[in-house]
Amino acid sequence: MFFQNWEGIARTVTVGILAYVTLILFLRISGKRTLAKLNAFDLVVTVALGSTLSAILLQESVALAEGMVALGLLILMQFLVTYVSVRRAGFAKLVRSEPALLARDGAFCDATMRRERITRDEALSAIRASGGRGIEDVSSLILESDGTLSAVFGRAA
């Protein structure tokens, strides 16, 4: 339970170092956008990379070469999806969500909040976390593409 053998520990250390170096190399080659969490799709890829790295480290049934291919495949697919998204608006709409206006000029947009499944309490919590006191302080409250809530304060003239 606590210790099986030194061979398993040596494998974890060796494979861990090699997999880590491979991941860093792939991420440097693919660019900053690969780990940007600009939308839900990006977050899923980031989590999948972490899960894949974990599987490479801890599952003896996953060979290092297979794990490296899996990491490379995830990064390549992320690159291709973002590459096509930048060039084709229709494809971009398919893979990412648009921001949603949840409140404007001190009033909630109830229909949008219902559609996005955001409660008033969650919205008010985001407003307070951004430095506001309540909905009356908000010029706009936006549910961003990555799932975060952004509060804009001050009324437009």
Rank of each mutant, 00 (worst) to 15 (best):
V138K: 00
A92E: 15
Y20E: 11
A70N: 00
D42R: 03
E60P: 03
L53Q: 05
T52K: 14
I118R: 05
G72Y: 05
I75Y: 00
T52I: 11
A89R: 03
D42P: 07
A63M: 06
G131K: 09
G154P: 09
F79E: 01
S85K: 01
A55Y: 03
I127G: 01
A63S: 13
D110S: 01
L23V: 12
G8T: 09
G90N: 04
R88C: 12
E66Y: 06
L38A: 15
T82H: 12
E136I: 15
F3V: 04
L73I: 00
F26R: 03
L102V: 01
V15N: 04
L25V: 09
T52N: 09
A19M: 08
E122H: 08
R104M: 04
R28S: 08
S150L: 02
T12A: 10
A19C: 09
A100D: 02
I142V: 05
V21C: 07
I135V: 12
S140W: 02
M113N: 00
V152I: 14
V47A: 10
G16Q: 08
Q78K: 13
S30K: 13
V95A: 11
L27R: 00
L57F: 03
F26W: 08
L64H: 08
F79R: 12
I24S: 04
F3N: 14
V84E: 00
G8F: 04
S125T: 09
T119C: 13
R155W: 06
W6F: 13
Q59H: 14
V81N: 06
D110I: 00
K37H: 11
V138C: 05
L64P: 11
L101G: 08
T12V: 01
I142L: 12
L18Y: 12
T12N: 15
G72Q: 04
V13A: 14
S85T: 07
V95N: 01
T52C: 12
F153G: 06
I75M: 13
N39I: 01
I142A: 08
A55S: 12
V81Q: 06
R117G: 06
V81T: 07
V69C: 15
I142H: 09
L149I: 05
S130N: 06
G147Q: 04
R28T: 14
S130D: 04
G8Y: 07
S97D: 15
V138Y: 00
G31A: 14
A10I: 11
Q4V: 02
A36E: 04
N5W: 02
V138A: 04
I75R: 00
E122R: 02
A111L: 02
N39R: 12
T14P: 02
L43H: 02
I127T: 05
V44K: 01
K32D: 05
V47H: 04
I24T: 15
T112C: 14
L149F: 13
G134N: 10
G31D: 10
S51V: 06
R87M: 08
G132K: 05
V69N: 13
R96Q: 10
D105Q: 15
N5L: 01
L58W: 03
R11H: 14
A63W: 05
R120H: 14
L49E: 03
T82N: 10
G90E: 15
K32A: 13
L141V: 13
I75S: 01
L76W: 02
L76D: 03
V95F: 08
S140I: 02
